[in-house]
């Protein structure tokens, strides 16, 4: 097996997290924001895996499973909301108009 350094993996996780956050903050399209959140979740998952590998513990993968279910639920609900908004007359999916709450 290869001997990748868990520290480097954590570095990658950090980078992915920062990029995801950049996407969440900078993009106005709800769909793209959701995708960026997926990247952030992936980064978190990677951090757990790397930590598990660093300390030879299976708990890292347990937490990974938790994150996985969380991501699945989040994607389902988030995409449902997006579809709903789209069909309710907001085809632009502009996140900044979310404060209008209506129409």
């Amino acid at each position: 097996m290869s001997a990748a350094s868990p520290t480097h993996a954590l570095l990658l996780a950090t980078l992915l997290f920062a990029v995801g956050m950049l996407g969440v903050l900078a993009r106005r399209n709800l769909l793209l924001m959701l995708m960026s959140i997926e990247i952030m979740l992936n980064a978190a998952a990677l951090a757990f895996i790397a930590a598990g590998a660093r300390w030879h513990a299976a708990q890292g993968q347990v937490m990974f499973l938790m994150i996985l279910s969380l991501a699945a639920a989040e994607a389902a609900v988030g995409l449902a909301i997006i579809l709903r908004l789209h069909s309710a007359g907001r085809p632009t999916l502009d996140a900044d108009t979310g404060n209008r709450l209506k129409g």
């Binding site: 969440v24 903050l25 924001m33 996140a95 900044d96 404060n99 209008r100 709450l101």
Partner: peptide, 13 residues
């Protein structure tokens, strides 16, 4: 309290 989710995210970050 603008109601804009991105600003809230920004504050959290």
């Amino acid at each position: 309290q603008s109601g804009q989710v991105r600003r809230y995210a920004g504050w959290i970050a």
